[in-house]
Structure formats: C-alpha cells, structure tokens
C-alpha cells in the first residue's frame, strides 16, 4: 500500500474558464472594414473581375462626389434635404415625445392611443405619400408630413416605454416630499426617461433619412433623394452611389450627434 501523504501531489494551474462575452469596440476596426471593402472593390473593378456594370469603381464615385461639391450642386441638393429632415424630424419627434409621455402618464391616453399607434406603426408610410400629396399639396408640406409621420410612431413607442421604465421609487420619493405634479413629471419622470428617449431617437432619425428619399420621389426638383432617383432611372451608377454615400454619411453624422448629446446629458449614468 502506498502512503498517500508522502506522494508528491500533481501541481498544475487551474484552468481559466471565464472571460469573453464583453465585446468592446476599438475605433480603428470600423474604419479598417470600410477601407478594406473599398480597396477590394477598387482592385476588383480595376483588375476586371468585377464589371463596372455590377459595382461602379470607388474612385469614380469619389470623383463624382468631388465634382458635385466643386460645381456647387452638392449644396443645392443637400440644403433642401436637410431642411426637410430638420422640419419633418423635429415635428415628428416633438409630437412623438409628447404623445409618448401622455401614454406613459395617463390611463385614458394609454388605453386609447396604444392600439392606434400599434395600428399605424406597420403601415409603410411611403404607401401614404399620394394621400399626403392630396392633403398637403405637392410642395414641401407633404414631404414634411411624410417624414414627421414616419418618425412619430417609433418615437412614441420608445418614449412611453422609457417612461414606463422610470424607477417608481423615485416618483414615490417625489410624492412623499410633497412635490407638485409638474415637478414630478419634469424633474423626475422626464430626466429618468431620457436614456430611452434618446436611444429611440437614433432609430427615428435613421427612419427619417429613409423616408427623405421617398418624400423626394414626388415633385422634388432638388434634394439628395431626388438626385439618387434621377441617377437610378438613368442607371448612372456612379451618381447613384455618390448620393447613397451622402445619405450614409448623414446617418453616421446624426447618430454621432445623438451620441454627443447622450454623453453630455446622460453623464450621470453608471
């Protein structure tokens, strides 16, 4: 029988099983993906195994963009588009936040409006464009209305969800200190709902850009959407891609703007 006590025990490190599941995002990776993709397309179109009918050459798209900017046509198209986004998006987001807060606070608003919003949400707003033209005319008003309507529904849904998620113990605290109703709403409920409202706004703004193109399908002389549609109907892929690039950049910029606001307003979050 061997003596267990005198045996040298087998020493080995404990196997590591933790870690992972915490993705971080180093900035350069995102840029690298774009650079690689564009470099690949450039190489492919130059080497000839991607035909210029499939995808335009990135350098050509860039040149088109350059010409667009140099000729001043970029601004003539961008300015009305930005105006439409600004007016339509502001109306949609403001009304959406107001209605969302009402749904979050009042039983009647909730009972009456939640089914209505659920009914409106899945309607492709583009399908309603003729209706808006009849209601608001073929000018700017119908474009504002389409963008406003499209941003309204997602904003409502995210806002009332955010209001529902405000810590009830904070509201009870406000009541227990005898705060006025308006103070509870504006100083406790709204700031508490702000994270949810802002992340909803990211989605709404992206939808606003999508609808911008739709809104410019009818009777728009200038605008990025009009520019893209015109290029598309002529199968001018360089100009099509130039326009799409502008929209993408617009989306990135708006998202970054919301991010900056979040950083400033939501510094209190842990």
């Amino acid at each position: 029988m061997t003596d267990i006590a005198t045996q040298t025990p087998d020493v080995r490190p404990v196997e590591f099983r933790g870690g992972g599941f915490r993705p971080s995002s180093p900035r350069w990776v995102g840029a690298l993906v774009f650079v690689l993709l564009i470099a690949f397309l450039e190489w492919g179109t130059r080497a000839g195994f991607i035909s210029s009918l499939t995808v335009p050459r990135p350098s050509d798209v860039f040149l088109t963009l350059w010409d667009l900017a140099a000729s001043g046509a970029l601004w003539t198209n961008l300015a009305p588009s930005l105006m439409r986004l600004l007016v339509g998006g502001t109306i949609g987001a403001t009304v959406g936040i107001a209605v969302g807060v009402m749904i979050g606070l009042f039983s009647f608003a909730r009972a009456g409006l939640v089914p209505l919003v659920a009914a409106i949400f899945p309607i492709p707003k583009i399908a309603l464009l003729p209706l808006f033209v009849i209601w608001f005319g073929i000018d700017e008003a119908s474009k504002y209305a389409l963008i406003a309507f499209g941003t309204f529904t997602p904003t409502v849904v995210s806002t009332y969800g955010a209001v529902d998620n405000v810590d009830r113990s904070l509201i009870r605290m406000g009541q227990s200190f005898g705060l006025r109703w308006s103070t509870v709403v504006f100083r406790i409920v709204l700031p508490g709902a702000m994270p949810g409202i802002l992340s909803g706004l990211r989605v709404s703004l992206a939808i606003a850009i999508i609808l911008l193109v739709a809104a410019e399908m009818l009777g728009a002389e200038h605008g990025i959407g009009a520019y893209i549609l015109q290029a598309g109907s002529l199968y001018d892929l360089e100009r099509l891609f130039a326009g799409v690039t502008i929209l993408s950049l617009l989306g990135v910029l708006l998202s970054a703007a919301v991010g900056a606001v979040e950083k400033h307003v939501l510094g209190w979050r842990t």
């Binding site: 904070l170 605290m173 200190f177 508490g192 842990t270």
Partner: peptide, 29 residues
C-alpha cells in the same frame, strides 16, 4: 414637509448632485 420618508433604496435622483437632490425639494416648496 411634516411627514418625511427615508427609503431603503435611498431614492436619490442619479442625475442630480448631492446638493441638487436636496435643492429640488426646497425650491419646489
């Protein structure tokens, strides 16, 4: 505020400073 609570979960507004949490109530009154 004659009847005043202290809660188990503190119920501090996370977006206000220590001072701001107190001043909110005083200014509202």
């Amino acid at each position: 505020n004659p009847l005043t609570y202290v809660f188990q979960d503190f119920a501090l507004l996370p977006w206000r400073t220590v001072e701001g949490n107190i001043s909110l109530i005083l200014s509202d009154h």
